[in-house]
Computed example of a mutant assay.
Amino acid sequence: MSLPLPSELIREIIYFTLSSTPPRSPTPEDLGCSTKPSWLTLNALSLTSRTYRALVLEAWFRTLYVESPKDLEFVRCCWPEVGPRWTRHLHCIQTFSSPFSQIWDLSCFLHLSSIRLDWLSPFLMQSFHSPLTKSGMPFFKFSSSVEHLDLRGLPWPTPEVLQNIPCTPGLGHLKTLKLKQDTTWCGLCGGFYRIRFKDKPNGLVYEGGYGLPIDYARVLTPLEYLEEVVITVPNRGFGSITLGHTPTAPDPDSETNSNPNLWAGECHNCMKTKYEDDAFRQKWVDRKRGIGVCRDDDGKKDTRPPNLRRVEWRFCD
């Protein structure tokens, strides 16, 4: 009679199976789509023995995908270990038409390290306030310090929206922030718009703490542990400017992916008009680098998260 495999080896097999199996959704990065594989991937093993089933459930609920706080309550009733022991990553969907019916009580999650929030609600986040929350974020009663936040689908990603993040208890120790949105914020005109570059830049990576729109950097300054921000926006093409557009000189070859202006969300109208003044353009670029004492028209000093090391812009189709 063969001896059973040790639980440590079974656990490794389970985690390898989960990580190597494609998600059940063909588009796991889209709003409302889970990144997890089908339960059938592990169902047979879970029926082998009580020991194996416990290991399977522990691995399965390490990432928890839920579409409403009511679903969360159901899971906690059926599997009490979900919050206190198993779950590390929470993927929740903000779908309800009434903002106050969709507030997530995170008190049971003692080891939660990351949250992905897919924002499908028609309500703006800055108008999302209730007596239970201290900010516009739909979370309350954090029992652990979340280090990674992934926000997707915000219809109007204004600085006022992002200001909700450092104001939310439990998010003060963020190390990485990911934003996937349909529009971006222009620090020159103070509006948001859809990107339409003539070329197709691969993306941008900034090291050293700059690369965010100045208004974003200012409102995120209280996040003293923040090290990385990744912003993903679609490039809809058919525009009239390139990433390195400078009216006083020919556009650089798109193949070189040149970025002389340290692009950080500026709209095509501002790049075409305000960059005509080369002195203004250079002053703006220096300001984004943090050279000299920089202040806005309202007298506020430019600031940014003290430990920010990396900013990445990703352009998708």
Results as ranks from 00 to 15, higher is better:
283 K>Y: 04
295 R>L: 12
285 V>C: 01
286 D>H: 08
284 W>I: 08
278 D>S: 06
274 K>L: 15
301 K>S: 14
283 K>S: 08
276 E>G: 09
296 D>S: 08
276 E>Y: 06
277 D>V: 04
298 D>A: 06
285 V>F: 00
293 V>H: 07
293 V>W: 09
289 R>K: 12
281 R>S: 04
300 K>Q: 14
276 E>M: 13
290 G>F: 10
298 D>N: 06
289 R>A: 04
293 V>S: 07
298 D>I: 05
277 D>M: 05
281 R>N: 00
292 G>C: 00
287 R>V: 10
288 K>F: 12
282 Q>W: 03
303 T>W: 11
291 I>G: 07
296 D>N: 09
287 R>F: 13
281 R>D: 03
284 W>L: 08
291 I>H: 08
299 G>C: 04
302 D>I: 09
285 V>A: 00
277 D>T: 06
283 K>E: 10
281 R>G: 04
289 R>Y: 05
285 V>G: 03
302 D>V: 10
275 Y>F: 08
300 K>M: 13
295 R>A: 08
274 K>Y: 15
287 R>S: 14
278 D>H: 01
297 D>C: 02
297 D>M: 05
274 K>N: 15
299 G>I: 07
299 G>K: 08
284 W>Q: 07
274 K>M: 15
286 D>S: 08
277 D>N: 10
280 F>M: 01
280 F>N: 02
277 D>R: 10
274 K>W: 14
303 T>K: 12
298 D>E: 06
281 R>F: 04
280 F>Q: 06
298 D>V: 00
277 D>A: 04
296 D>I: 01
289 R>V: 05
297 D>A: 05
274 K>G: 14
279 A>E: 01
302 D>S: 11
290 G>S: 09
284 W>H: 11
301 K>D: 13
281 R>K: 00
293 V>M: 09
299 G>T: 07
277 D>Q: 08
283 K>T: 10
301 K>W: 12
290 G>Y: 10
294 C>I: 05
282 Q>H: 04
288 K>V: 13
286 D>Y: 10
299 G>F: 09
278 D>E: 05
282 Q>I: 02
